[in-house]
């Protein structure tokens, strides 16, 4: 088991933040990570940009494009994590697409993750039924392969939940990532179905969450241990560019405050 559990220890309702590495540049990414840690973030999802991010809405698509246009690569991101890992104590996971890992060589990629202190992987285009592509390598290097459960998972929830590790990423609603004004999914019944099959692995809800009020509502659902925000942070970065770290810090502070 990796360090991911620390983010949820002592009944902490975790605030999980997603950023795209290299948007607008890796130096700013570093500063944002420090700023988020200083303001109480419990876990960070570091996005490795991909040319064709099919699970993302327009906001994160644009972040991927900015990062790639600026010449960010997987190796440069590995180096960035190496440089900060001594100071950054919270769990870190990578969020990227299957081809980024496959093309690098799964063994080499996941071994490097383990060496530089990456605790888990989120691969939105890797369905549960295909996870053997990467799972044996993840186990070999003690990196958690995080499962996602969506409103359409239905009768697949039980098997996904039973084998989940790290944390369970609950997708709040249909569609791709992006800010939503309201979330209408019956999340209670999804969480219940998960908990029936897996009482222990922490659950965090993401997709569409941007305001402290939404975060609070989501975190109050029984059995939920945290919330994930991505597009709202990326919007701040898109607006403020290299000056974003302080603004992102303020935002993280407000989201975390809503969860305490």
């Amino acid at each position: 088991m990796s360090n991911i559990k620390n983010a949820f220890a002592n009944n902490n309702k975790a605030f999980i933040a997603f950023i795209t590495c290299g948007d607008p540049d890796l130096d700013t990414t570093k500063k944002i990570i420090y700023s988020m840690q200083n303001n109480g973030v419990d876990l960070i999802e570091l996005g490795i940009p991909f040319s064709d991010p099919t699970a993302e809405g327009v906001v994160i698509q644009a972040a991927n494009l900015r990062a790639l246009t600026n010449g960010v690569t997987t190796d440069k991101i590995f180096n960035m994590v190496r440089e900060i890992r001594n100071d950054i104590k919270i769990p870190l996971v990578f969020m990227t697409y299957a081809n980024v890992i496959f093309s690098y060589g799964a063994d080499k990629f996941i071994k490097t993750c383990s060496e530089i202190g990456i605790d888990g992987l989120i691969i939105p285009d890797l369905p549960f039924e295909e996870k053997e592509e990467f799972l044996p390598v993840c186990k070999k290097y003690n990196v958690d392969l995080i499962s996602m459960i969506a409103p359409t998972s239905e009768n697949r929830i039980a098997k996904i939940a039973k084998e989940a590790e790290g944390f369970i990423y609950i997708v709040s609603s249909l569609g791709v990532t992006g800010v939503r004004s309201e979330i209408k999914t019956d999340l209670n019944s999804i969480v219940n179905a998960i908990r029936k099959n897996n009482p222990d692995t922490p659950c965090a809800i993401g997709f569409g969450i941007s305001t402290p009020e939404q975060a609070k509502t989501m975190a109050q659902i029984p059995g939920v241990n945290g919330v994930i925000t991505g597009s709202a942070i990326i919007k701040i970065i898109a607006q403020h560019g290299t000056n974003a770290p302080d603004f992102v810090g303020e935002y993280v502070k407000s989201m975390k405050a809503a969860l305490i």
Binding site: F50, Y97, S103, Y104, E133
Partner: peptide, 16 residues
């Protein structure tokens, strides 16, 4: 691996 299939793809060294 892209668009839900494992096959041959035109891509760069990092899988973009």
């Amino acid at each position: 691996i892209f668009h839900g299939m494992k096959s041959y793809f035109c891509q760069d060294e990092y899988g973009q």
